[in-house]
Amino acid sequence: MKHAGMTSIVQNTTRLVAGFIAVFAVYIALTGHLSPGGGFAGGVILAAAAALVLLAFGGRRTQAVLSEGTCHVVDAAGALGFVAIALGGLGAGVFFANFLPLGELHRFASGGTIALANLAILVKVGAGLVGVLLALAVYGTARYVAAERARGESPDPFLEI
């Protein structure tokens, strides 16, 4: 195969857009205590950026940049960050209690630990979803193609990502 993935139009558009989508995901997560959104929504949007890259450039090239192992480590870091925020609350009396100044209503610096928790969830959900996408897209099809080859059949060329 000369090039994996989709045409150069799609690839170049993806190069332009993917970064903006990722920044938007962080924005959605960080303002989750003021407007609709939050860590989970942000994480899903982040994963959408990764899905775009995956579709445009194909599984192997995406995996060279972003392996499943990296996703595991980042995912674990997000979860542990969330636990750390909960433990910080234990220092203030009870589990998950707020230990930061509450700030002023309708300003960015409000909501105490909520913004931090949203950030941790963004990392966790984003990395987790990207890991799921990589696992399903790359391993699923790669194993399928290998199995078909082993049986002496020629699999659909579209699957050779």
């Binding site: 595991h72 995912d75 674990a76």
Partner: peptide, 23 residues
């Protein structure tokens, strides 16, 4: 009695730590 939440949180936290440790 302050440690009660750890019954649930300690194993959950360690589970995620293992995922990181594996790499």
């Amino acid at each position: 009695s302050h440690l009660v939440p750890f019954l649930a949180v300690l194993p959950l936290g360690m589970a995620f730590l293992f995922v990181g440790l594996a790499h």
